[in-house]
C-alpha cells in the first residue's frame, strides 16, 4: 500500500494502476470520490441515506471489478460518474421511492449559476431560490432533471456529460437547452405557489 501523503499527488489513472497492484490502494480512490458520488446519488434519486450508501457501495464494487476496463481516453471522474448514473437507474427501480421530494442539496454558487444561466429572477432570498430550484427540478422529466444536475450542480462540461450519459455532445447540448426551457416554464408557473 502506498503512503497516505503520496496519494494526494497521484492522478486517478495512477491510483487505478496502483489499485490493480494492491487491493488496499483502491481505498484511496474510494475516499477521493465517496462524498462527491454520495451527493450525486442523493441529487439523482429520492432514496433514504442508507439506500444511497448501499448504492454507493455497489458503485465502488463495480468500479473495482471493472478497473481493467478503464482507459485513459476518458477522464476517470467521467467513468465513475457513468457507473454511478447507471447504478442509480438500475437500483432506483428496485427501491421504494420516498413520496416527498428529492434530497437535493444545492450550493449557493450552483443555485446562482443556474438562475443566471436560465435567466430567471432570483430574488433576494437565496434559501427561497434554492427551495424553488429543488421543487422545480423535482417536477421535471427524469432526462431533463438528470442533465441539469450534471451541468449545474455537479458542474460538468459538455464533454464530461457526453461521456457520463453516453450521448453525443450535440444531443447533450440540445437536451440541456430543452431542459432549461422546461425548467424556466416550470419555474414561472410555481412562482406564485411558493
Amino acid at each position: 500500500m502506498i503512503d497516505i501523503a503520496d496519494n494526494q499527488n497521484l492522478s486517478d489513472g495512477e491510483l487505478v494502476s496502483l489499485s490493480l497492484e494492491n487491493q488496499h490502494n483502491f481505498l484511496y480512490l474510494v475516499n477521493r470520490y465517496r462524498f462527491k458520488l454520495l451527493s450525486y446519488i442523493k441529487r439523482l434519486t429520492n432514496v433514504s441515506d442508507d439506500d444511497a450508501e448501499d448504492i454507493l457501495q455497489e458503485v465502488f464494487i463495480k468500479v473495482y471489478l471493472n478497473l481493467n476496463d478503464f482507459n485513459s481516453d476518458l477522464k476517470f471522474s467521467s467513468w465513475i460518474y457513468r457507473i454511478t448514473h447507471n447504478q442509480v437507474i438500475s437500483s432506483h427501480r428496485k427501491l421504494k421511492a420516498r413520496p416527498e421530494g428529492h434530497a437535493i442539496d444545492i450550493e449557493d454558487k450552483s443555485a446562482l449559476n443556474l438562475a443566471a444561466d436560465i435567466d430567471i429572477v432570483a430574488g433576494t432570498d437565496l434559501n427561497i431560490l434554492k427551495q424553488k430550484i429543488i421543487k422545480v427540478l423535482d417536477g421535471l422529466e427524469r432526462k431533463y432533471r438528470d442533465i441539469l444536475i450534471l451541468r449545474f450542480l455537479e458542474e460538468k462540461n459538455y464533454q464530461e456529460i457526453s461521456d457520463i450519459i453516453r450521448k453525443p455532445q450535440g444531443t447533450v447540448a440540445s437536451t440541456i437547452n430543452k431542459a432549461k426551457q422546461e425548467f424556466k416554464k416550470e419555474f414561472e408557473t410555481q412562482k406564485i405557489i411558493l
Binding site: 489499485s19 490493480l20 487491493q23 481505498l27 474510494v30 457501495q57 465502488f60 464494487i61 473495482y64 471489478l65 471493472n66 478497473l67 481493467n68 476496463d69
Partner: peptide, 13 residues
Amino acid sequence: LVDKIQADNLSPK
C-alpha cells in the same frame, strides 16, 4: 466495502 470484497472473494476482471 473491504469486508464485502473479501467475503465475496472479488477481484478485478
